[in-house]
Amino acid sequence: MNQVWIQCEDKNSLLTAIAEPGRVMIAGGTDLLINVRRLAPADKPAQMVDLSLVEELKNIHLEGNMLTIGSMVTYTQLMTDPLIRKHLPVLAEAASQVGSPQIRNRGTLGGSLVNASPAADMAPLWILLKAQVKLESFGKERILLVEDFLLGHQKTMLAPGEVMTEIRCLIPKKSVIYQKIGRRNAAAIARLNGCCLLDRQEDTVKEIRLVIGAATPTPLDLQKDCSGWIDKPWTIERLDEVASQAMRRVEEISGRRASATWKFPAIENLVRRLLLDAWAEGGKQ
């Protein structure tokens, strides 16, 4: 195959470039190039399209309650963006825990979603926020929930000729709590992470969203497992119940792998901690 390198500076030329079959898209490259390095020369991509210079895909804007983030926004950009810091600071906080400064300067939100690592830092948050992604191809576009976009370990709904251009979500009424467990603070991939949003009136729970990541091939949405809580008072028994339910759900999906010895108790504790913190946050006006 003829080798091809195309750098696109606008979305139209990008959509034209990727309409040809066999073209590999590169964004920040922080995941892709690690994979390419492992390939035999004959298996390395022969035709590549660079998305990293498309300015249209680097915007962040807020319209009413809807936040729209371009797919080529880097973690550094997300961390430092005034709109994000003001309206949805948990995104900035989670972004600041991704990799290292070098990776945050290069890695993009769209690249990470398309790479679909089970340990992706931001994925549980997108699911909790019921975020949608816009997938565009020449003359067409479609919108999918992140939850439906992610299919499994490095598997997504992205079709040939399509590129993710936007991620969008509504700003929730309550603050979202995000936590990550890694081997160390810097440059660590999440061994477990999760996020929680809880809305309550006095001691009565009105809404809970809870998602944990890195324990299953795609983030595990535990919102339904928490539904018994709605319109009921907060009790420690129910907290324990949800925590052990989370553990059982992970076991059903991922089985008891070698990491289960530490991961199962860690999941229970992570869920407890997320719920407790979200409970405190949910009481704030």
Partner: peptide
């Protein structure tokens, strides 16, 4: 901006 040059495709520096 600081980047790891091992995970930047050289042609992206065009």
């Amino acid at each position: 901006q600081a980047v790891n040059s091992c995970t930047v495709l050289a042609l992206q520096a065009q």
